[in-house]
Design a binder for these strands. Sequence first.
RNA 1: GCCGAAGUGGUGAAAUUGGUAUACACGAAGGACUUAAAAUCCUUUGGAGUUAAUCCUCCGUGCGGGUUCGAGUCCCGCCUUCGGCACCA
Length: 807
Amino acid sequence: MEQYNQKEIEAKWQKNWEKSDLNKAEDFSKKSKYYCMIEFPYPSGEGLHVGHCRSYTALDILARKKRMEGNNVLFPIGWDAFGLPAENYAIKTGQHPKVTTEKNVVTFTRQLKSLGYSFDWSREINTSDPNYYKWTQWIFLKLFEKNLAYKTKMDINWCTKCNVGLANEEVVNDKCERCGGDVVRREREQWMLKITAYADRLLEDLDKVNYLEKIKKQQSDWIGKSHGAQVVFKIISKTELVEDKGYYLPVYTTRPDTLFGCTYMVVAPEHELIQKFADQIDNYDEVLDYIELTKKKTELERTNLEKVKTGVELHGLKASNPVTKEEVPIFAADYVLSTYGTGAIMAVPGHDQRDYDFAKKYNLPIREVISGGNIKKEAWTGDGVLVNSDFLNDLNVQQAIDKMIDWLEERELGFKTTNYHLRDWVFSRQRYWGEPIPIIICPECGYVPVPEKDLPVILPDIKNYRTTETGDSPLAKVEDWVNVACPKCGGDAKRETDTMPNWAGSSWYFLRYVDPKNDKVLADFKKLKYWIPVDWYNGGMEHTTLHLLYSRFWHKFLFDIKVVPTPEPYAKRTSHGMILGEDNEKMSKSRGNVINPDDVVNHYGADTFRVYEMFMGPFDQATPWSTQGVVGVSRFMEKIWQIGNNLDDKKRTNDDDLIRLMNKTVKQVTEQIETLDLNTCVSAMMILVNKFQNEGCNKEIFEDFLKIFSPFAPHLCEEIWQKLGHKKSIFLEKWPKYDIKLIKDEAIEIPIQVNGKVRSKIFVTQDMSEEEIKKTALSDEKVKKNIGENEVKKFIYVKDKIINIVI
RNA sequence: GCCGAAGUGGUGAAAUUGGUAUACACGAAGGACUUAAAAUCCUUUGGAGUUAAUCCUCCGUGCGGGUUCGAGUCCCGCCUUCGGCACCA
């Protein structure tokens, strides 16, 4: 009995495949193209995670199957190599991020190759490679040219630990997403990208793509388009401001119909109104105290104090309701956010629960303007007929909204508008390990783009990776790099020292795979036309808002300037579930529940590891790791090895039963790879192999099995394939076909229920008429017994499924 | 608080989308082989009751209702867990 030495076999085939062209994608091949892609990894010092492997194995199976089905498959790999961990490590140890990143890439490469993934390594890319980031910088220049990149002074999130600015999106619970440090507000000049200019298209074009519904929902929620009106309230102060026409406070509301029910107003604690009217506010000190308090509050504290709304009235100021001319009080309260709408709201406690809670606490009047609820108990947010609203009375909500907007527009007190949650993308980082922003700041000419011929702007080597005391990037200290001549006027100028965020390089990498070595353009247009869009993109759920949205934005921009041929980058997007530790918790170093792929591969082999990860549970759901489960798969692999090495050609050459199950399995595996129902694919093949083991199998059938199993366990199948006398790789074989006629059983066993309970089973054949079946069923002993003396009221026969007799 | 996903044996999970609930795998128990163990193979394995019996009966997919000949699946109302979040006006 020959031993299954997986280690030897896997090393042997990995070497052989590397020498072959099996996985090379061919530009302009006449075969139909298939571009499938996984999210390229950030090469962290921790090495490959078993979660990476879940995604990579699934799409590797897809890629291998697509090739066997005759497609020209592009399945590429690369490195999302810029990133903060490498920089933080450099700050700690003084090691250049380039050096540690290179080291990590070597580790990742070894690990990925040890798993036998069929990547086309000839197209490997690295975002920190100047030949790559030259084009990241080029895209920035184009955005700048089209006024989609601008610099502005703004309050940004400032991580006190990393000393970097963070996009809102990167702040988690008022802590820095990457380092966990405290985040405070701080004003700074920042490069911004105008993603909001694309908000509508990013939303509408979701109809054009095949993303999982939940992913689409996340995208559209993040864009957050709402319809409503902007309304202005005149501010009344004790002394009129010097400004001639007075101060009008604009608010955004989705419910202008409730304007008659507005009994107070709220501005965000950060609102400019407070500064502007500082000397008019009687309790200014109290207000300042409140603002200070708000700043200290973490997001978490705010959410925990959910029910207890806090705020402070701005004594001395009133706002005039534009429709009632009533003067209402103004509050500053942290439940209003400065970042959404205009940072101020009209409060309608009768019809908004948050306003209602606030009004109750501060004893403010609650007025019903829409009937249908009981505002003594809670706010009524549903539809109803308008009351107490003068010219809106008796209308329903939608009619009232329309009429109110007309009324406001006529008097120039407001207008219909939409609002987006989506805000412009903060693109500056005061960091070292990122793409330098290719801009030169000239005292005469302002922001001058680096001429295209001078790209890439190479990231210079430095010794000290720490942000400067002023919060500038460490690049600011590299004087011979910073000081340059202005490309426009030739005078003394300085380079921009901010670098790009991690998202930049990953926003377009799928384009570079198409033409990774091009030094004339980011990728040849004809090649892009052949390959783009990506047919299937899989990645983690955590990237389905930010990364996905950013890369769609860049792609749309590139489409507008005619650099790419399609408006959308990814035709299809799926996400995989997390792999949890054996304790059912998220894997983390601190919990000590991390599973290292190397250990699994060394102990059980790559094929076992791959098959286990597919078998462990539904692909899109979180599942805990189970070492016992790996053992089970390991036995399965051993079983296949033994059967493959002991095939008896004379045994079972033509058995209908076996052929039927084989055809069924081919059908199921063929279909379910396409839906990534890989756990049930594996179990179907286990059932087949159990049959082989119990009843024997001939060579022909076993070879078909090897073909459908080869994407899952490539090394094992290739080895047995060779041992069965084949000279060429199994991956050059055609994907097996199945015959639908052979799948149907001649006789089907169907259950008979009496009053919905299974009482017996009978066999029916294809040629039996319904009458015959009924007769057979009713004459069945057990059925007879259960019917007894009762009258048969109904006889239900669902073809090939079930019989139900109602008595 | 809001949004999303889920809840089925001791465990990971199946169930052709309204048609035999628990496939496949793990674990456990018993047996075979062995001096013994490991490995491997065979049998049993949702619960309760009942029986000479592996006969038979009832219960059973988070909870409570409903629709249907028939519900894990559909509808209404809850509970719990996980993931995400931006009190979004």
